[in-house]
């Protein structure tokens, strides 16, 4: 019989220690004391994953949807690509004892170049691959903030799972338990 998740504490102050996820980077942690953060999400997408029971926390910052565009770079830097990065994120979460069925997954980014005219649509393609992979792996996106033309900063508090977005000088909560 499944056990109830422990009670969720309040988000820690913004000045708490943080683990920075770079562009084309993936980080995961079982350390509950920190905030995981990534900056400069333009057309890139940031994905957070959090297990409310174990407090395992992960974040991916991928640039492009599909690795086939550059197999050599994909081999060296799989987190550059959504199709490799998302499964890798799930593997890392499992390694930390997370159950993917419990994961709270959020996403942000996927902005578009202004006046794109349909040439690039990197943001849209990045969003599409995430939705496909979420469906494939049985994940439900708990919240997302994507599109537009602006960059975003995405963070998650490992203790309580609260996900925050900062854009254009304003911060808001994207998801909270």
């Amino acid at each position: 019989m499944p056990q109830p998740a422990p009670s969720i504490p309040s988000p820690r102050p913004i000045g708490a220690p943080k683990l920075v996820v770079g562009v084309a980077d993936l980080q995961s942690t079982g350390d509950r004391t920190i905030r995981v953060i990534t900056h400069a999400l333009g057309s890139c997408i940031g994905v957070t994953a959090w297990d409310p029971r174990t407090r395992a926390t992960g974040m991916l910052h991928y640039m492009l949807p599909e690795s086939k565009i550059s197999p050599d770079k994909a081999e060296r830097q799989p987190a550059m690509f959504g199709d490799l990065g998302v499964p890798l994120l799930l593997e890392r979460m499992k390694a930390l004892g997370a159950d993917t069925r419990r994961l709270v997954v959020c996403a942000a980014g996927g902005a578009e170049v202004v006046a794109d005219g349909g040439t690039f649509r990197i943001g849209a393609r990045n969003r599409t691959i995430l939705r496909k992979l979420a469906w494939k792996h049985g994940l439900l996106l708990a919240a997302d903030d994507t599109g537009g033309n602006f960059s975003r900063t995405l963070s998650i508090d490992a203790e309580c799972g609260t996900v925050r977005i900062r854009t254009q000088g304003e911060e808001r909560t994207l998801w909270a338990a």
């Binding site: 890139c44 640039m63 170049v113 602006f150």
Partner: peptide, 15 residues
Amino acid sequence: FAGLGLGCDGLLYPV
């Protein structure tokens, strides 16, 4: 596209 140098101007430059 690599997320370098993004500030309040974001992606507000046409290609």
